[in-house]
Simulated scan of single mutants.
Amino acid sequence: MAGDPDFGGRDLDQALFELLRDRALDLDPEPWQRLWADRTPTSTHQRAQLARELTLAKESLSSTGTVYLAVPGYPEPFVVQGGEYRAAVAPALTASIELLERTVARAGLTPAELGAVVLCGAASRTPPVADLVATRLGRIPDLAADPKAAVALGALTDPPAPAGADTGTDAGEEAAREAASADGPRRWTVAHYPDEVDPELWF
């Protein structure tokens, strides 16, 4: 298992923010600088409102080709095209897909051997993510699966042997196992990741 806990939807918001910032500074830097330097309640509210609009714009760019963003101090809204947004977020998304590729390889699998590629989290379900997965892994992500059930800390291993099966253990080992299981039968072990679950966890 691998992941980047520092990457998420806010990173995509930041990419759109930087795109808008660069556009504003090229047009006229003074209103933009004043907006972010002023600490009055009015400017604080305007910055918060702009942050909300950026999040909505990011979501809109997933299904529409153009958004219009009004920035205080500028007479006309800024136009952001879907292609500009996709180009801005491509480096961060590509790094995430490369992490997925390395994880699959470390598991000794190929993308074709995966049961499914499930996108979890609102940001991951934007079209640029699915497009990159399809291009790099040759797999169409599964959007129908329940993302809440797609993440696990480990995998169940060593299912119980069928009744009467020869397990290859001697009587001493079997007695020790039964003694350790005094509080109830140990049916499954858990293949875990260090520091994430109790290594003695059984159920």
Score class of each variant (00 low, 15 high):
Gln33Arg: 12
Ala145Lys: 13
Leu20Ala: 01
Asp142Pro: 08
Ala123Thr: 04
Ala88Arg: 05
Asp170Leu: 12
Arg187Gln: 13
Leu137Asn: 06
Pro159Leu: 03
Ala112Gln: 15
Val67Arg: 11
Pro159Tyr: 06
Glu200Gly: 15
Arg23Gly: 03
Gln14Gly: 09
Ala90Ser: 15
Thr55Cys: 10
Asp146Gln: 04
Leu19Gln: 10
Ser181Ala: 15
Leu93Thr: 01
Ala155Arg: 15
Leu93Gly: 02
Ala90Pro: 13
Ala92Cys: 04
Ala2Ser: 13
Leu109Phe: 12
Ala176Asn: 05
Trp36Glu: 12
Ala171His: 10
Leu50His: 06
Val190Ser: 09
Leu132Ser: 10
Ala163Cys: 06
Leu69Ala: 05
Pro128Ser: 02
Ala15Val: 03
Pro160Cys: 00
Leu50Asp: 06
Arg187Asn: 11
Trp202Pro: 05
Gly184Thr: 14
Leu12His: 02
Arg47Val: 01
Ala2Gln: 07
Gly3His: 03
Ile97His: 04
Arg139Ser: 05
Phe203Thr: 01
Arg139Ala: 03
Ala48Trp: 02
Leu50Pro: 01
Tyr68Asn: 11
His192Cys: 11
Leu99Asp: 09
Glu53Pro: 02
Gly138Cys: 01
Val197Arg: 14
Asp158Trp: 10
Ala145Thr: 15
Ala107Cys: 11
Val104Ser: 07
Leu132Gln: 14
Ser60Lys: 12
Val151Ala: 03
Ala149Lys: 15
Trp188Pro: 01
Asp28Thr: 14
Val71Gly: 04
Glu53His: 11
Gln33Ala: 07
Glu113Asp: 14
Pro77Arg: 00
Ala161Trp: 13
Asp22Tyr: 08
Phe78Arg: 12
Arg52Val: 02
Ala130Gln: 11
Thr157Gly: 10
Thr126Cys: 13
Tyr74Gln: 01
Pro128Gln: 03
Val118Ile: 15
Pro72Gly: 01
Thr135Trp: 05
Gly172Thr: 06
Ile97Gln: 02
Thr189Glu: 13
Ala15Tyr: 00
Ala51Asp: 11
Asp11Cys: 00
Thr55Phe: 08
Ala144Arg: 12
Ser124Asp: 10
Pro160Leu: 01
Leu114Phe: 12
Ala51Thr: 08
Tyr85Asp: 00
Pro162Ala: 04
Leu56Pro: 01
Val133His: 07
Gly9Cys: 07
Val89Ile: 12
Glu113Ile: 09
Val89Ser: 03
Thr40Trp: 04
Leu61Trp: 06
Ala176Ser: 08
Ala92Lys: 10
Arg139Pro: 03
Thr110Gly: 12
Trp32Gly: 01
Ala149Tyr: 06
Thr66Pro: 05
Leu93Glu: 02
Trp202Lys: 09
Leu100Phe: 09
Ala149Met: 15
Ala2Tyr: 09
Pro75Gly: 05
Pro147Trp: 00
Trp32Asp: 01
Gly108Asn: 05
Trp36Ser: 02
Pro111Ala: 14
Phe78Glu: 12
Leu19Phe: 06
Ser124Ile: 09
Pro5Ile: 02
Pro127Trp: 06
Pro128Glu: 05
Glu196Pro: 00
Leu20His: 00
Asp198Trp: 07
Asp22Ala: 15
Gln81Ser: 11
Ala57Met: 07
Pro162Asp: 03
Asp26Ala: 15
Ala90Leu: 15
Leu20Phe: 00
Ala171Ile: 04
Ala87Phe: 08
Ala95Met: 08
Asp183Gln: 07
Ala51Gln: 10
Leu114Tyr: 08
Ala149Gly: 13
Arg187Ala: 15
